[in-house]
Structure formats: C-alpha cells, structure tokens
Amino acid sequence: MRILQMIIDTSIDVLPIVSIIFGFQFLVIRRPIPNIKRVIIGFAYVLIGLSLFLLGLEQALFPLGRLMADQLTNPAFIYGDLANVSGDIHWADYYWVYIFAFAIGFSTTIAEPSLIAVAIKANEVSAGAIGVQGLRIAVAIGVAVGITVGSYRIVTGLPIHYFIITGYVIVVIQTFFAPKMIVPLAYDSGGVTTSTVTVPLVAALGLGLAETVPGRNVLIDGFGLIAFASLFPIMSVMAYAQISEYIAHRSD
C-alpha cells in the first residue's frame, strides 16, 4: 500500500518532466521516438526504482541518520557530563561529529543515483579514460571533506562566505592547471552530488549541530553544509585528474 502511494507521489513529481519531453516530441520534433517501447519500459523502471529507493530511504536510512545526527550533537554526548557545558567550548571537542560528517558524506555520495548516472555517461563519452568508480570515489572524498569543513564552520561560527570565496579562488587556480577535458565534468560534479540521499542526512546534521553549539542560530548557521558539499567535489575531481595525469606522466 505504501509502495503504491510512493509510486503515485513520485509520478506526480516526474509528471512535469514527462509532459515537457513528450509535448516537445509530438508538437515540435514530430518524429517517432526510436525504440519507443523500450523507452517507455525504461521510464517505468526509473519510476518504480525511484519509488522503492525513496521508500527504503524513509523507512531505514533517514530515521536512523537523523537519530544519529541528533545523538552525536547532543551536549550530553559531546561534553560527557553537563558540568563542562558552561565553560569554553573548543572546536576539537566535536571530533566525533567531524568523523561522522566525513564518513556519512563519503558513504551517501557513493550511493547517490544521479552521480552514478553522470559517472556512467562520463565513462562512455571518454571511451573509458574516466573510470566510473574512480570518479565516484573522487567526488565522494570531496563531499566528505566539504561536509567536515562545513561542520567545523558551524562549530566555530565563522562566516560562510569566507570559506566559499576561498574555495572559488582554489577552483579558479586549479582550472588553469587541470587537464582541459576534466574541467566541465568537475564543475558538473559539484551539482550532482547533492540530491536524494545526501541532502536530508546532511541537513539533519547541520541543523542538529547549530542547535547544540552555544551561540549558534539554527536558521542562520544550520544552513550551508550543502554548499560545502557542492563546492569541494569540484576541487577533488580536478585533483583526481591532475594526479592521474601526473602518474601517467611519470611512468612514461
């Protein structure tokens, strides 16, 4: 029953895209779609797959992830006993939060369906030069580092734009040195990483953290983790290409 409800919900979400595609196909392009049957079956698979995926996430992963984010940012967990709360807080007290941020950033990115899609496409277009797994791991490391840095920012309360602008400067510098073919893909990987799996879990971590750390405002400091998660993969993907090029160069 819940599966059916989920399929209906997902269909409603997908409806605008489907109507745009078929509208243009029939009104503007006016040519039959090649392998129409296969395409429709493919769409049905995507719908069923996405519905099951979301249902599973809501049943298993999100409650657990939110619960863990809550528990890890709970003052009683971080400060041991309540006696220390009134004293100075040190950013290093939150080490479990950083470790969790890194681990959850990495692991959710590996499971992100849209990243799998882009990696498959990049592998196909580059004739195998870009490995599906290599790209996904590079992006996942970027997200992991990004969310860790973002958690550090929430704990210290430093303004977000310092970090983001510094990130931009690094991206611009890297762009000049990275292999040309990776640059557009690297820019893209910033946007694709943050979707179905990562966003809800990371948002829960950010809000939980902003609630716990004294002096933070949930509404102002709780946001921004997604921004970190979409900036750092740009750097890590370019770095991945730079390192592979360097290794290939040395072995010549």
Partner: peptide, 9 residues
C-alpha cells in the same frame, strides 16, 4: 531498477 531504466529510457 533505477539504473536499469536509466540506460533504457
């Protein structure tokens, strides 16, 4: 299913 449908549709 999603990845199946991705490459088919």
């Amino acid at each position: 299913f999603f990845i199946y449908g991705l490459e088919m549709g």
